[in-house]
Design a protein around this nucleic acid. Sequence first.
DNA 1: GATATTTACTTGCAAAATGCAAGTGAAAGT
DNA 2: ACTTTCACTTGCATTTTGCAAGTAAATATC
Lengths: 150, 150
Amino acid sequence: MANKNKDLRSHCPVNFGLEAFGDKWSLLILRDIVFRAKCTYGDFLKSEEGFSTNILAARLEKLIEEGILEKRPQETDARKDDYVLTQKGLDLIPVLFEIMVWSSKYDPESEARRIPGLIEAITKDNRQVSREAIEMVKARKPLLGAYLRS
Amino acid sequence: MANKNKDLRSHCPVNFGLEAFGDKWSLLILRDIVFRAKCTYGDFLKSEEGFSTNILAARLEKLIEEGILEKRPQETDARKDDYVLTQKGLDLIPVLFEIMVWSSKYDPESEARRIPGLIEAITKDNRQVSREAIEMVKARKPLLGAYLRS
DNA sequence: GATATTTACTTGCAAAATGCAAGTGAAAGT
DNA sequence: ACTTTCACTTGCATTTTGCAAGTAAATATC
């Protein structure tokens, strides 16, 4: 799974990120995993933004190719697979968080405004909160649940 | 300022960001402004990733609609307009920075590895560096120049 | 054990977005 | 006057998206 010889437009660090997850859907999958502890194709499909089945399948495949996600067969139900974040995927949590801080500021109807504690914590120390979030994700606990109750 | 009545897929803060700048090009314009002190259509066109003329025009228009960019006629040359970041646009710098930190870690050929000082500073305190960056952008100085010389 | 249902997709097709080349028109330079 | 620069627009082929429908394997139900 080493060198995927894809031809990048450039090795600018902004562009590298955009080529890996720069579209309207990929980060929503990350969000579902991190905040809602989702992990199967069917779970993602139920998201409020409304994935098309083919688009979801394509994005999952892309994120696996990028090394951001891993696919693991479920032990209890052979029809299902779990999609889990790799370390590379977990390291995107700080990016997710900064987007949330920005949206919280500029979307008056942002759902983020219901969790001011989390937004404030991220603003103060994104990296510290990210470390905690990574542990939550590894433990398969929904991050949102924790902060909605605070 | 006109068309504010766009129907969002949701008010999830991750989704809000994706709908505003979630594509392969928009953040490259931001990068050019922040790091290379570019500000005209022609400047952006010269970027190494190779904008199509129509795509660039469409993205600039979109970012203006989103309130992230502003268009100002140049005083010295009436053919040109300056595209400048609004506060809403400047507040995206922390997002840009987190993407760079991630890419620096996972792209072995990342140009970010030539500016370890900046990456380390962002990792330690993104918000502090962002505040400094905002001042640089307002003063029309290229951020990259400053860190390449350190 | 046969049948129905759930799950994770794939396929077909219309519509939209993208990418390239070639204009266009106003302003600036010569 | 004319040529060039600049910021786009237009036309068109290719690619990607979005929706509906279908499929095949595994599980649940009768």
